[in-house]
Design a protein around this nucleic acid. Structure first.
Lengths: 124, 124
DNA sequence: AAAACATATGAGCACTTGTTCATATGTTAT
DNA sequence: ATAACATATGAACAAGTGCTCATATGTTTT
């Protein structure tokens, strides 16, 4: 197990050996790609802020405009708008225009699944 | 709808009105508490880093020691250890000692559920 | 066209985060 | 007891994040 941390010739460090070589070799192929890992982490990053979580929980109750979210969450209009942008970019919310207002809503079922699982996890 | 952004006497801004007053009033009681929102966001924060996501995907393949994770993910021992600490504090992984090595594994079913849902979400 | 309204956006700043380097802790072998 | 190994930890620093303030954009009303 030499040169473990600086192994230019074996990207997955398979040549230089490890504690559990068989497992490591078997998993190396099935590993998540760097690109996938990046997108998944970006997705969860969008869920990693208290204000954004509260906004999403509002929207679980039904579609509503920025102004209503602002009432429920109790932060400035600018803050809500910036956070909605982040949630939009992560594909967690969508919106439609009606007159002067924009009505935001949860983008799809994955969002509520993740939030529900997260809530379950913390209550243990 | 006056004094909307500086409403000292109505914490949930129910008195000062909003676009969709009925919905807002109905949801105000059911809203996630600040404490819950904080813990949920902290949980997702633990999932919001690429290296940590890759570590968790390793562990989905079975329990393994720090050294093996280091091989698969290809970062320094110190970095892996620091990230495992974060994952441990979030209740996402656990470990057992066997001789000199510590064997880490996924803490419970919620973790794989969240990762799976996250992966589904990004592939759309 | 002008005013009022609803929301978005950019710059700036305090705060947080992930990594690295050096070192400490704990375990086994000699 | 000493050395070697496996992992953890603290300090420090660059990079990123969320908020606020001021202002811009788009829509409706007058």
């Amino acid at each position: 197990m030499e040169n473990k941390e600086n192994c230019a010739n074996c990207p997955m460090h398979l040549e230089c050996g490890g504690k559990n070589v068989e497992l490591v070799k078997r998993l190396a192929d099935k590993m998540i790609t760097e690109e996938e890992a990046y997108f998944v982490s970006e997705l969860f990053k969008a869920l990693s802020d208290m204000t954004r979580v509260r906004i999403l929980f509002c929207l679980l109750g039904g579609e509503m405009c920025v102004c209503d979210i602002q009432e429920l969450v109790g932060v400035t209009q600018s803050a809500v708008s910036h956070q909605l942008r982040t949630l939009k970019q992560a594909g967690l919310v969508k919106y439609r225009r009606e007159g002067k207002s924009l009505y935001y809503s949860i983008a799809d079922g994955h969002v509520s699944t993740m939030l529900a699982t997260g809530l379950e996890h913390i209550s243990e």
